[in-house]
Computed example of a mutant assay.
Amino acid sequence: MTPHDGLSGANHPAIERALTRVQSTTSLQRLLRDPLGFVWRYALGWRSVRFQSDPLQLGAASFGELVHELISGAIIALEPTPGFARASADEIEAAIADASTAILHAWPLQRSVPPPILWRHTVSEAARRTARGLAADDQVRSDTRSWTEVPFGQRGGAGEGAPWDTTITVPIEQTGLVFGGRMDRLDIRATGDGARITDYKSAKPPPRHQRIALGQGRELQRVLYAIAVRALLPEVRTVVARLVYLADDPAIFELKGDELDAVVGEAAGYLSAAMTILRSGRIAPRWEQDADYDDMRLALPADRETYLRRKASEFRPANQPLNKLWSAST
């Protein structure tokens, strides 16, 4: 292993600065999934150039953003009156239609979208997934209040209508890290003793029999949101954190009770392990299975498979504290 691979001085001040900043859920996910990529982006400030072409279809990330914006627009339109939990099917359908119309006209003014006919089809498909996802919430109690894109740990005011002071950052105990972000959706009972967090996914779900905990670090967000809710709403006794996949038939994967407590502990332990790797100075690339979606892969040699194979005897021990997470099936 050489400095060209990621070797640096132990306790490097640039790395310390990157770790002591207010983290986002995105930066913490990268810290878990790719410690060296975390250094490149947050310690060295590397950013990839984003090329805006005229696409025939939205990429997976942009389509997911579209669905999230539709869900947000629909729930905002229904809260606080009549309230999402009390809204009729017709009212929810109308809210989704209004949000779709707004996005149909707004997005082409802000970014590259497919040609008009394909764009209308794309928005229709996103609206269909939104409707099916929200229809899966039949069990929401009528005394529940819903928020969407609810911020925490953000600068610039307390946040009108939010259930907490949105400027407060959230600590992750035992790591020394603090973070902020935005939750896809938060439901709180009127009694204030129960909360449910929803992280929406526009992709196809994994098999229903598969247990999803941290998903090799990919599904860290809902766990971080659970930590935030417990810190910002200490009166809440019951927290449910769920993933909702919207493609095909909506599939819901929940963490609650002792299982959620265990996964929160696992996440904190792995984040501490990632920080130990960074502070050791032996920061190695990893064999990233979803590298096609990672803009930082361009920092590695073009023939990355051969490169990683030749260096494996050095890289595996360097990444050993996180190898269990990366190889986990859940």
Rank of each mutant, 00 (worst) to 15 (best):
G215S: 05
A131S: 15
T306E: 14
R128N: 10
R279S: 07
A87G: 02
R145A: 12
G192Y: 08
D292T: 12
L56I: 07
A77P: 02
A267K: 02
S24M: 04
P115E: 13
A158V: 13
N11V: 03
A162V: 07
L325M: 13
R230N: 06
H209T: 06
L44A: 14
N11G: 08
G9V: 15
I212N: 03
T166F: 04
Q216I: 10
A291Y: 09
L224K: 01
L58H: 07
D34K: 08
G192T: 02
Q320C: 05
A99G: 10
E16I: 07
G181N: 12
R120N: 12
D193A: 11
D303W: 05
Q57Y: 04
R50T: 15
L56W: 04
K324W: 05
T26C: 08
K201Q: 08
T198Y: 11
E91V: 09
R33K: 12
A213M: 07
S88Y: 04
L246T: 06
A94D: 09
A18R: 01
M296H: 07
L308T: 09
S48P: 13
R237F: 00
P317L: 14
A127R: 12
T166R: 13
R41H: 10
L28H: 09
A267F: 01
A94H: 01
Q110D: 04
A328D: 15
A328P: 08
K204E: 15
P116E: 13
I117Y: 01
L177R: 06
A89T: 02
W164G: 11
Q29D: 12
A284P: 00
Y293C: 06
W40F: 12
H105P: 02
T330K: 11
Q154N: 11
A94Y: 00
M183Y: 00
P321K: 06
P108N: 02
V170E: 06
I197F: 01
R129G: 03
A228T: 06
D292H: 15
P171K: 01
R33D: 03
L298W: 09
Y245E: 03
Q174R: 15
G181P: 10
F253W: 07
S8E: 13
M275N: 01
H68A: 13
L36C: 03
A94I: 05
R237Y: 01
S112P: 00
T101S: 03
S124Y: 03
N319L: 14
R222G: 10
R208T: 10
I15H: 11
L32A: 03
R21P: 09
R222N: 12
L255S: 09
G133W: 09
I227V: 15
L19M: 05
I15T: 13
Q139F: 09
R310M: 09
V140E: 05
I71W: 04
A95F: 01
L177Y: 02
D90M: 03
A89N: 05
A251N: 05
E69G: 03
S280W: 12
P317W: 12
A213I: 01
D54W: 13
G281I: 08
W40Q: 14
K311M: 14
A162M: 14
I252K: 00
L104S: 13
S62P: 03
W107L: 14
V244C: 03
L66I: 11
A97I: 08
L7Y: 04
T166Q: 13
A99E: 07
A43H: 07
V229G: 08
E173P: 02
P207S: 08
A162G: 04
G176V: 03
D54E: 10
L271P: 04
D249E: 15
T25M: 11
I283E: 01
R50Y: 01
A268H: 08
F152M: 09
S24I: 00
A190V: 00
